[in-house]
């Protein structure tokens, strides 16, 4: 069933074998898929339940009647539209910044030989190893000193200076690209930058889609950053907005779930586009192994 790339020999057996294979694959995917659907389906079903039913125990998966009013209520209970625009602003800038800067840095770490490279790379990795709880306050103080607190700058500008996670990820992908390719390009007179731009980047499209998706998602869901850097409710983000449904004296579950459902939509849409690049990676572009 895991025979991903088999090229059957005869046409007859191909179709028959193919049908079985497809069937088995679908069964596996559907069974597993149902398990993975739980969180989302549960979120959606709670969003559609009347409040009295949310507390039913044991929980019921399918609402007695679909109650759509939680959606309009949730989206007007907090200024959700404003939050979405704010969050999109942060996410898109951070996405652009991270993609460009991380690609440059990853190339420097993966494809150019220079003394000190490995030491710097290790230092870069080590920045992820110290728990952020203890650097949070000093970083805040730095941003405060340069007057960025209270704006989106602390949430966006560092993205233009590369993210360690993404640099590492892209480095791994760049390393799998045959060295002969870039060397051939250089022999043809390509500069380092052109090699990066014209040879390496196009080959790493799936990796880029991943980086874009992940940065978007991280920033979309980021809670701590907006919480400590923003002090104006008009600038709040979606993740801060979701907290507005959780109260000291009880949570508005129906609205929380409705708002959460809406909040996942942009990521689902982005994922749909990103995963398209997985269909035709470089394997079909004819690069020799």
């Amino acid at each position: 069933m895991l025979d991903i790339n088999a090229q059957p020999t005869t046409k007859l057996s191909r179709t028959k074998k193919g049908v079985y294979k497809q069937l088995i694959a679908h069964v596996c995917l559907i069974v597993l898929g149902i398990t993975f659907l739980f969180p989302f389906v549960w979120m959606l079903s709670t969003a559609l339940k009347p409040e009295a039913q949310i507390f039913k125990w044991p929980p019921e998966w399918i609402p007695d009647q679909f109650l759509w009013s939680n959606f309009p209520e949730a989206l007007t209970f907090v200024p959700f539209g404003t939050y979405v625009i704010n969050t999109l602003t942060i996410c898109i800038w951070a996405m652009v910044g991270t993609c460009v800067s991380s690609a440059l840095v990853a190339y420097g770490f993966a494809k150019i030989q220079w003394p000190g490279r490995n030491v710097l790379f290790m230092i870069m990795l080590s920045t992820m190893m110290l728990p952020s709880q203890v650097t949070m306050i000093p970083i805040f103080v730095i941003f405060k000193k340069i007057g960025w607190v209270g704006s989106y700058k602390p949430l966006i500008i560092p993205a233009f200076l590369g993210g360690a996670f993404f640099i590492f990820l892209l480095r791994q992908f760049f390393l799998t690209i045959p060295q002969e390719l870039s060397e051939a390009a250089k022999i043809d007179g390509c500069s380092e930058f052109r090699t990066f731009w014209q040879i390496i980047l196009p080959l790493a499209r799936p990796a880029f889609a991943t980086v874009a998706l992940f940065t978007f998602m991280n920033n979309w869901n980021d809670f701590m950053g907006p919480l400590i850097y923003l002090s104006d409710e008009k600038m709040y983000t979606v993740s801060l907005g979701l907290q507005q449904f959780i109260g000291q004296y009880g949570t508005r579950w129906g609205m929380l779930m409705a708002a959460s459902t809406v909040a996942t939509l942009p990521i689902i849409i982005l994922f749909f586009f990103a995963q398209k690049t997985f269909i035709q990676g470089i394997s079909t572009t004819g690069i020799k192994g």
Binding site: W93, W148, Y152, D232
Partner: peptide
């Protein structure tokens, strides 16, 4: 390239106090 990066970053650095909070 780096210049463009810096300009973009700078653009945000300068613009953001005004733009998102403009509604204030």
């Amino acid at each position: 390239m780096v210049l463009i990066l810096l300009m973009l970053a700078g653009l945000i650095a300068c613009s953001s106090p005004g733009s998102p909070a403009a509604g204030q």
